[in-house]
Design a protein around this nucleic acid. Structure first.
Lengths: 198, 198
DNA sequence: TTTTGATATATCATTTTGATATATTATGTA
DNA sequence: TACATAATATATCAAAATGATATATCAAAA
């Protein structure tokens, strides 16, 4: 049984009752809230930042998850800023939320999925002119190049503050991105070369 | 405007009418049917094969897509095998289906998404004991090692038949997988080493 | 002053997943 | 031969996620 389901079970949801699936956005939100209180909008911004190269999340999943997790007692609303009429809801992680995060981190199950349309086009592109495939590689190469530059800046900044355990973890994640993107670049050059032969 | 939407537009779906989103499973199915006639079950098996490391697809998306694409005239049913009582529906790509595939291949837009729970655990794992993170890396390493072995066998077999354009494309896709998985292995060793320091 | 862009929450149709239901056919084994 | 198990095959469903859109406020630039 997966860790989250196990926790739901411990918390009293019996076998017969309809149980929520493992909603992955929950742990992303909990992971971010473990560091600081955030609004739904803040969460989206953070997901679109350093996290974006290995995980995605839309408003359409974040807001419903937040209100659902509030009902479950994993997060709680902080008092709204009364000085301004502006609606702004800060969320805070609870003890139960921290426990859920801990259970997930210690669960050995992890799904790692890649969905690369570029590779789909490569795989099915044998019927088209080679220039089409080469163009698709070039577009991919540009995307990768841009991402690589951003990740290298992240890395440089993190290298200065590696003494904190959290920063070491961010650093290793970023390093993963750099290593793989560099492998992509290498492959792009190789593939273009082969396709330009003959 | 995305290529598929463009084609839908050309085919008479006006602006006001509710239009289907870009359903990616369609082009996966069309790409496979471009090579040979297949049943829904066959399609699932192919997706779980060489394609699986860069794309996924479940029965719950394949079967509804097939019947919808039949209505759109992108694929058509082949006569069922009458000798056996066994229900088995072979699908064949149509001229319109081939055109749709071609438009997609020539469309420069491509989304490339990674969803790695392992990296999510790495990123948020700073609060746990290092042994937890190391264990998560080891599990990932085992998965990668297994996939790498399978891809290397694919590569060896494809190297013998590179004269066919399709096989060259399969070969380049597989090579991408090998290069990235090897980068992953390199990163795993580096990350474990750093986490075991101090 | 106004208009553009960023902030902020929320909802909706569509797509996809992952699980399950149902039934047939092939294979291994007692 | 009989029986159980695994593979084949289609199909549906709730839950989750995406991507788009709606609504409104606030800050900054033109």
């Amino acid at each position: 049984m997966a860790a989250l389901r196990m926790l739901y079970h411990i918390n009293g949801l019996g076998e017969g009752k309809k149980m929520a699936k493992d909603r992955k956005i929950d742990v992303v939100i909990l992971g971010l809230l473990a560091h600081e209180d955030l609004t739904g909008y803040d969460i989206k911004k953070q997901i679109d930042g350093a996290i974006s190269f290995f995980w995605k999340g839309s408003f359409g999943s974040i807001y419903p998850a937040l209100s659902d997790m509030e009902k479950q007692g994993l997060v709680k609303r902080k008092k709204a800023d009364v000085t301004s009429g502006r609606e702004k809801i800060f969320y805070q992680i609870t003890k139960k939320g921290k426990d859920t995060l801990k259970v997930w981190l210690n669960d050995e199950k992890a799904t790692n999925d890649l969905k690369y349309e570029t590779l789909l086009k490569m795989y099915f592109g044998g019927s088209e002119d080679r220039s089409v495939t080469i163009r698709n590689i070039e577009i991919f190469e540009e995307q990768v190049k841009g991402n690589l530059e951003v990740l290298k800046i992240y890395k440089e900044n993190l290298e200065k503050i590696l003494d904190q355990e959290d920063h070491l973890h961010f650093y290793l994640t970023v390093t993963f991105g750099i290593e793989t993107y560099e492998a992509y670049m290498k492959w792009c050059n190789m593939a273009k070369k082969i396709l330009k032969e003959k």
